[in-house]
Design a protein around this nucleic acid. Structure first.
Lengths: 168, 168
DNA sequence: CATAACTTTCAAAATATATTGAAAGATATT
DNA sequence: AATATCTTTCAATATATTTTGAAAGTTATG
């Protein structure tokens, strides 16, 4: 396989995968491009390379910065901004996990906590099933949140070592 | 909060959350409804309760069965089929993790393995960066796959206990 | 075997999401 | 302070996804 073919496949696949992970396809494609670029790229280069509009390039770069996955760089003597991605994949993974945790797990836990307070007859089958399901769900989500929160505080080797022992 | 309000909020929230997790919104809504129903429901009841079409009710129930989250039940004396959800949330979580692992992680690992074989000059900066990124990505994804595969083989208490020790 | 009861299919329609690009907004340069 | 360079915005448009519902398919019943 030639470099250009491999590059396109990589960007394409990363976009598709991300799509099923709550990250927009083109944001993931921009990310993929920056991940394999040894040098920082300008918005112009990104839009030309991926054949996307100026607006889209700008928005996606912005979103990637919000996610903490991409950084701006100001090159002396150049007017325009350059962008580069965090290359340490473990840091990337931690960053994504933590962002999604904050954006999704925290709100759902707050909601479940609310829903447990539903009024009603304790002898009603439906009411009981509802309380049970919501409570069990909260318990599992809460444990997952706990584990993720701690896991991202470790460095990769510590986590891998610990997991290896755990599952030996 | 009244039962009906809580129920609607739960179904709504579960649908929204699932949307950002690669599961379709209405499949998640049907799932939510069955999760809090003490009794099995017919397709008819699902479509009436959620105000969705017959076709959609059928397709989503089918998909939920494919995901191993919902089962058919044949009630003696009744022509129609009834559906009920797995209520053990830990089992539900394991099932979802494993399905997504199979559907998404396995293909991406196969692709990354392919991409590492890209032809090219080892002294080219771009080529080198590409190989590095793909290799690092494969390593992280592979470790995650390993951990998930093992984790879903444990029962909930064993996993929680082990994680608690790990992160103490 | 004809009819009724129920399930499945799928092309068309509706809805939701992503993308564009031209114009407005910044900021630097002369 | 006028102009050039670059960034951001956002309404319009294009694309993708979901949903519908009527018709076809299937299976049970008398």
């Amino acid at each position: 396989m030639k470099y250009n073919e491999a590059k396109d496949k990589f960007i394409q696949a990363w976009g598709t995968l991300a799509g099923s992970w709550g990250i927009s396809r083109s944001m993931a494609q921009v990310h993929a491009l920056l991940l394999i670029s040894p040098d920082s790229l300008s918005a112009e280069e990104v839009m030309e390379d991926l054949k996307i509009s100026r607006g889209s390039a700008n928005m996606n770069l912005r979103d990637l910065i919000d996610w903490g996955l991409v950084f701006k760089e100001l090159v002396p003597g150049e007017r325009k901004e350059f962008f580069y991605a965090e290359k340490d994949i473990w840091k990337v993974a931690k960053q994504i996990i933590n962002e999604r945790r904050k954006r999704e797990i925290e709100p759902i836990l707050a909601l479940l906590e609310e829903l447990k307070k539903v009024e009603g007859n304790k002898n009603d089958k439906k009411h009981k099933a509802f309380i049970d399901t919501v409570g069990n769900l909260e318990s599992v989500v809460d444990k997952a949140d706990f584990a993720l929160t701690r896991a991202i505080k470790l460095d990769e080797n510590a986590l891998v070592g610990a997991l290896f022992k755990l599952f030996k």
